[in-house]
């Protein structure tokens, strides 16, 4: 919030300066100030444009993205449209298809699977709409991808597990909790983590199952895994909220502290709380709030890019931060509403 305020103040200041400069230049009859020209160009490229955003639903993560995008875009006079399919992939496809017909300038999507929107995103670019994919990519490459370097997150989790459990320090048994099996974020992270784990002879992946972002399902699966492998050393989970169920199952089995839980997540407040309570061992946060600012940056860049849709394939990989205690609160965003 503070950052936003300073940004806004800065802009006001800049605007005041430009106004002064314009007044000066008008008075002296000299060429326009290059800085005010920049502002004019920026405004011409952005003002009155429409950016449409279709998340999977408006959960905590998506709401944070939406909040940041909304405040930034509105500040620039950009028309911001949100469509909430409420976790229904058929409705999300409908929403995207409809939006393509409405021809916004930029379409931002979060893909529930790699395939669902792939074809429509291609069509969108053919229709001249620039497409940004957020954190969960599809099989189609579009103008920009903003999100985590997912395989790297997988490797970071796996490395943490190896460091904790491998080489005789633990049983070496690891369970992986995937999200949605066909979602890029889950798929790519699982593949990368598995690859690294398998490269270490002391490690073994005893279970790798999708829990569909659902804490209840994660709880069930973890309970089963723990029954079969009481000596489980680590659980790798691709996302925070679903992991709460797994942590609960571990606690119920009386194994809290013995089973290490490494989570990759977006930095929603609950993730940090879980770490602080000792329910998660470590949380790898890609800081959704900061990521959202990168989405805004990508959108602004694309708006100012005169080339047609599909020309560029920018990637804005976000930085990941380990959260291991209260001192790392800054890597979790504040709960909105």
């Amino acid at each position: 919030m503070r950052k936003l305020l300073t940004g806004a103040m800065g802009r006001t200041l800049a605007a005041a300066l430009t106004a002064g400069a314009v007044a000066l230049s008008a008075g002296s009859g000299q060429a326009a100030d290059p800085r005010s020209e920049l502002m004019d160009k920026f405004q011409a490229a952005t003002e009155g444009k429409t950016i449409a955003w279709v998340p999977i639903w408006l959960g905590v993560l998506e709401s944070e993205w939406t909040r940041v995008m909304k405040s930034n875009f509105e500040d620039h006079g950009i028309n911001f449209v949100v469509r909430d399919p409420n976790f229904k992939s058929d409705i999300q496809l409908q929403a995207v298809s409809t939006l393509i017909n409405e021809k916004p300038d930029i379409l931002i999507v979060q893909n529930p699977t790699t395939t669902l929107l792939a074809r429509e995103l291609k069509r969108a670019m053919r229709e001249g709409i620039k497409v940004i994919q957020v954190n969960m990519a599809s099989n189609t490459l579009t103008d920009a991808y903003v999100g985590a370097d997912v395989p790297r997150m997988g490797r970071m989790l796996a490395q943490e597990a190896i460091d904790t459990c491998g080489g005789g320090k633990g049983s070496g048994k690891v369970a992986i909790l995937q999200g949605e099996a066909t979602a890029a974020y889950s798929l790519d992270m699982t593949v990368a983590a598995t690859e690294l784990l398998e490269s270490d002879a002391s490690m073994s992946v005893v279970s790798s199952q999708p829990v569909n972002w659902d804490a209840n399902k994660a709880s069930e699966i973890t309970t089963n895994v723990l029954q079969q492998n009481p000596d489980l050393c680590a659980i790798l989970s691709v996302w925070g909220p679903q992991t709460a169920g797994a942590a609960q199952a571990v606690k119920n089995a009386g194994l809290q502290g013995k089973v290490n839980i490494f989570v990759a997540s977006d930095g929603q407040p609950a993730d940090c709380e879980m770490v602080e309570k000792g329910l998660y061992t470590k949380n790898l946060s890609y800081t959704a709030d900061r990521q959202a600012n990168q989405i805004v940056a990508a959108a602004l860049a694309l708006l100012q890019d005169d080339r047609p849709a599909g020309s560029a394939q920018y990637a804005f990989y976000t930085t990941n931060y380990w959260v291991s205690g209260p001192e790392d609160r800054e890597y979790c965003f504040a709960a909105s509403n």
């Binding site: 058929d90 699977t113 074809r119």
Partner: peptide
Amino acid sequence: LYAARQNSAGTDT
């Protein structure tokens, strides 16, 4: 028809 249109077999299908 859904398969041909959506190309996707998600868990929520």
